[in-house]
Amino acid sequence: MRYGMILDLKRCYGCNACTVICKQKNGTPKGVFWAKVYATEVGKYPQARREYLPTLCMHCANAPCVSVCPTGASYKREDGIVLVDESKCIGCRSCMLSCPYEARYFDFGAEASYFPGKEANPYEVAQASKRKKGTVNKCTLCVDRIDEGEIPACAQVCPTQARIFGDLESTELQKLIISRNGYQEKSVVGTDPSVYYLPR
């Protein structure tokens, strides 16, 4: 059992639905994006085009964030999901430095509200308990939803179904990765991410 995601670059149009739903479902503060889409351009006019790289925490098999963590706050579940136990997190941020994927965020205690000078709105108040100032946060692969038998919010929301969630050890996902020449980002660093990309 190894939960992970396959991101089909051929189907990604960089719309950022995943970026928004992740914020919304997880109540992340301003400037924090557990899911996001890097957009770039390649080529010279007129042979130019856009490229997109949707991302999330790679939930690496050899997660450097887990080994670097001095307190065991960053840990890996049996099913491969990498999580942060914020009650154990001392906020040293070494996990952030060790992560080659910019997947981790630190809670700088920035203003709770997206509306500076205004009170936090009822949604923000309801989400506030998910945050802990001074600790590190990251994509949980929507573990709460997985434990309820659902799929991560970003996988469900994707309007072009470019985000495929499942057990990487399953035949279906293995087949898909092999048949489409799936690859892992920055695989040279030996992290063995649980997120595969299917080239366009």
Binding site: T71, C89, G134, T135
Partner: peptide, 28 residues
């Protein structure tokens, strides 16, 4: 180091984790 921590109240955990995978624990 303590000043640099976001959550210094938990700083004792470095001493109690004995997690020698972590260079930070070695450092400590």
């Amino acid at each position: 180091i303590t000043i640099d921590l976001g959550n210094p109240i938990q700083v004792f955990r470095i001493a109690t984790s004995f997690k020698f995978q972590s260079l930070l624990v070695w450092d400590f």
